[in-house]
Nucleic acid binder design. Sequence first.
DNA 1: CCAGCAAACGGAGGACCACCCCGGTTAGGA
DNA 2: TCCTAACCGGGGTGGTCCTCCGTTTGCTGG
Lengths: 167, 167
Amino acid sequence: MRADARRNYERILAVAEEVVAEQGAEASLEEIARRAGVGSATLHRHFPSRQALLDAVFRERVEALCAQAEELVPWLRAVARHAAANRGLGPSLTNGADCHAMIIATGSELLEREDTVRPDVTIGDLLTLAGAISSVTEGDPDAAERLMTIALEGISRGVKSDGPNSA
Amino acid sequence: MRADARRNYERILAVAEEVVAEQGAEASLEEIARRAGVGSATLHRHFPSRQALLDAVFRERVEALCAQAEELVPWLRAVARHAAANRGLGPSLTNGADCHAMIIATGSELLEREDTVRPDVTIGDLLTLAGAISSVTEGDPDAAERLMTIALEGISRGVKSDGPNSA
DNA sequence: CCAGCAAACGGAGGACCACCCCGGTTAGGA
DNA sequence: TCCTAACCGGGGTGGTCCTCCGTTTGCTGG
């Protein structure tokens, strides 16, 4: 990769991070290119699709999320929280190629060594839930975590204070 | 309302139903106008915003859904299923003014006369979940219902066969 | 029956977008 | 130093949403 190409790549990525944080996943690619001081063609060359750009933007964040994985349920809550806090991340969890693969791999491991979970629930289900919830609660991490908790525990009375997890 | 105005209104609504079923909530308004044989200005005059149009499109469907409400949990499953089956309905449950009001009202009643539900769960939470799930599983009602069931029951082993509901 | 008026129409156009083609430029190895 | 392949970005295409405004239409009072 030539030096100028690498420079532009980094620059676009940094600007994309900013703009996506401000405007969410639907931010104008044109504006990202403008702010980065490159032509729109350059942006499209480096990132063939919007999803590719978002994938690159969120890659670090998802890596961090995967690194701090210890236990399934708290981790899923953290995923929902982070995805709601970082505009645009939610959809990337389920659509973005790299992000999706990373997070599925991490989640799978956690789910496997968990024996209190119904066997018909897959990690795909859980991450789809996390993605769905955080897309809808974008900008409100507390709400995302709350809903994720409900989805994991169910709505029955008593589960919260004396649930099957503690039995 | 003049006869031609009414005619156009109905025509746009009918076409919008078709196009939204084909392309989802992000369907091109321009195309709806084209297929309806009216100028885009006419569409905008009758429906000032996309949401207004979607609200009108889904009004009947949401009414039907509310009419068949009997018990909270089965009804929520039905909501998720229908919202996933009808492209674009999901977001309207939480964003559309009319649809949202109707469905919240119906759900509130069901939730009130339900005493097995954790008191910290609101009908807003449950419908946000239903909306989120069906947006993400658009086109696959079975998946939507499955995820909704998980979200309502929680993920703990044993809840399904011998859950707190039956205790 | 018809004249006149308000209401409704729709094409044209502005502002924006994603995406791509292509001619000019430049980095960096030989 | 020179040559070439990689890279660049302006500008074009075709799409979007939405509004302005001159034209047509339906309705109604005489």
